[in-house]
Design a protein around this nucleic acid. Sequence first.
DNA 1: AGCACGCCGACT
DNA 2: GTCGGCGTGCTC
Length: 668
Amino acid sequence: MAAPLIARVLVDSPLPQLDRLFDYNVPESLATDIQPGIRVRVPLRSAGRIADGYVIELTDHADGGYTGVLSDVEGIVSTVPVLAPEVAILARKAADRAAGSAIDIVRVAVPTRQARVEKAWLAAERGEVLPVVTALPLEGYPAGEIESAIAGMGRLAIDAIPLVTEVAAGVWVGRWATTLAAAATRAIAAGGSAILAVPDYRDQEQLAAALAAVLPPERIVRLDAKQSKPDRYRALLRCLGDEPLAIIGNRSVVYSPAKSLGLIAVWDDGDPLHTEPLAPYVHTRDAALLRQEQQGCALLFVGHSRSTEVERLVEIGWVTSVSPTPAVRPKIIPTAQQAATDRLAAQARIPSTAWRGAREALETGPVLVQVARPGYAPRLACVDCGQSARCLRCEGPLAQKSATAIPACAWCGALATNWHCANCEGTKLRQVGAGGASRTAEDLGRAFPGVRVIVADGERPVLSVDSSPALVIATRGAEPVAAGGYRAVLLLDGERMVARESLRVAEDCLRWWSNAVALSARGAPSYLVGVGGAIAGALTTWRQADFARSELADRRRLRFPPAVRVATLTGTIAAVAKAVTDLPVPSADVLGPVETGPGTVRTIVRFDYSAGTEIASSRGADGARLVEQAERLGIDRPQIRDDRIEVAEERVDDVVAAGERQLGHAAR
DNA sequence: AGCACGCCGACT
DNA sequence: GTCGGCGTGCTC
């Protein structure tokens, strides 16, 4: 009889207690097919209860800590090693950093199996030799700087070139996309795959077009959440081959299998879409940093603005900042909110300089107008008493989608027919504050008669526009790419965007504006309306990194993320107190507790990065774990008051829920 | 999560 | 003396 074959299995269970490897005996009948990375079915506790899991490793000796009798692996779900070893290691590391479960990461990393797709893939011939890829130079940057970083596993923070470029007849993309594409060709030419992570499908379309221009289609894999399940699974299977590929997608793409990984590039890491909404909420940037260290590939953070997180990495010397040479500085004109001479322009809340600039630009091509909100009248109030109008069903705010639409609830969608004011019984509504994209479009249409008006927002996505004159009204982040670039850009709702209450407002605004400005043609004017101060200065001088540096300095002074890491503890007073006294690190400071409900409190723990490992793995006698949630928390509307951080009301539920998930097992 | 094991009140 | 309360703990 040969040595026993033992499979170490990560069980697919949401229970944090099961977040470790279990040993199972491999019966003879499965011995030939079993291998690390495949999905298996294993018994758990009382016979009859069967769980799915992944084989992490095969061994001939049981884990020393367990002396009981091993159960047999029940069966093999699929012989395809969908959880690549490097991804299993990454999942473990990412989970440890965020005090979460590895299986939660694996669920994001491995798409659901599609038997038909798998069958076709297994039957298909493999080992075909793909065409040779030429390594392209990184044009517009200091010669050799990015190239040598890619060759030498370097880490860079790259300021993107704020221009658009044509990658195929009539196909225009942001210049950043060709930078990423060129970087990918270098990794692939050197024999490594490139993982390219973008925040949303808009960016992905641009990147896909840029890649298609420089790589054969067999070298490009799309792996994103928008795909159908079969497409996602097919894409994952393609990544399992030996040939280096460019793998593009949104945040989950950082977990795609890539045995020989040459490069990870993250576009616009400040975009909140890079934050994974599923526990343990690992950000693309953090997963990328872990994977870079683990697999020794190159790592590029590319963006028009710099996140405070990446700025921190630059300051501690972990990543190196690279700027375009020669410098490309867009022409930005800050304009105070002065009354325009033209009545119609004034109605459209456009200052006269911006109005003149837009009128002139409209003679030669498209003009972009960035607004804060979609719809027509985003806020409505009672004509008689001025109270904001609330839904009669759910108390949600009422808004109007178009000039002719019946006002409806922004939360539950109920139409506000027969509406009456809860305060004064009035029945007439009026708009409050500036209008949304549709209203702006209407106003601007009047101010510029005869000009084509295009509205682009979440509901009416427009990816690109041609080079003929048009007013393109877009909500922030939804701006289409214009052929040849916009001849002028109007950043209209700056004031409103800056007024948002969040720890990251300034950073976010600068990012939204910079991304819009980067869509302009070379030399075209961009008008920032109604915003002054340091943030306007940072945009006009195009010195986003400097702004990030001063933001980070402020956060350091206040001990806010990302200067420090933040965890929350929510639970019964006793459980939280116990967990706090059990903190393994004296450098951690504790804010609160604040009451979050009957008998429950929330405490925010701030600690230095160096303490992260100890904090994340700390367990009190009650089993409490701290979770880093700086991102998740956001700490909206930060205020230090009586030495406490108050969290905006709308986020309290999130915080409590997250804390309770952590302490759910602590309470037992 | 489930489902066992485990140590104190009212019953044939 | 036993049947059973669900508190505590484990899952290879």
